[in-house]
Simulated scan of single mutants.
Amino acid sequence: MGNASILHMCLNVADATASIAFYEQFGFEESWQFTTPDGETTNYYVADDSGVELQLAETDGETSFEMGSGWDHLALGVDDVDATVERIDHRGV
């Protein structure tokens, strides 16, 4: 079984500027950003010195999230994508 590492976690945020300022208080710095091809969502990344990275997906001011909807995804890195998919496919993923 191969090893997996956490690449980043994506959080939905109403105000990316305020969120970036919040994470800067913990030693994170804005590292890069991109806007989705449909132009609807801008994603900002902040990273710390150890390589921990958070993706902040701006929600155009939406502040009301149900339990569990404030985050979008957890990105994992694996050595072999095909082997990993084959290994977890039968587990309902």
Rank of each mutant, 00 (worst) to 15 (best):
S5F: 11
I6V: 14
I6N: 06
I6K: 04
I6Y: 07
I6S: 07
I6F: 12
I6L: 15
L7D: 14
H8E: 03
H8R: 01
H8A: 02
M9E: 13
M9R: 14
M9V: 15
C10P: 09
L11W: 05
L11C: 10
L11F: 13
L11R: 05
L11Y: 07
L11E: 04
N12F: 15
N12I: 15
N12W: 12
N12D: 14
V13F: 02
V13W: 00
V13D: 03
V13A: 05
A14S: 14
D15V: 07
D15K: 00
D15G: 05
A16I: 07
A16G: 11
T17D: 15
T17P: 12
T17G: 12
T17S: 15
T17N: 14
A18C: 13
S19K: 00
S19W: 00
S19V: 02
S19I: 02
S19C: 10
S19H: 00
I20K: 00
I20Y: 00
I20H: 00
I20L: 02
A21D: 14
A21R: 01
A21Q: 10
F22G: 06
F22R: 05
F22N: 06
Y23V: 09
Y23I: 09
E24L: 07
E24N: 12
E24C: 11
E24P: 08
E24Y: 03
E24V: 08
Q25I: 10
Q25V: 10
Q25L: 14
Q25Y: 04
F26G: 02
F26D: 01
F26V: 04
G27Q: 02
G27I: 04
G27S: 04
G27T: 03
G27F: 00
F28I: 04
F28L: 05
F28V: 03
F28N: 01
E29P: 08
E29V: 15
E29G: 11
E29F: 10
E29I: 14
S31P: 06
S31D: 08
S31M: 08
W32Q: 09
W32Y: 12
W32E: 09
W32C: 10
Q33C: 10
Q33V: 07
Q33N: 10
Q33W: 06
Q33E: 12
F34D: 09
F34I: 10
F34G: 09
F34W: 13
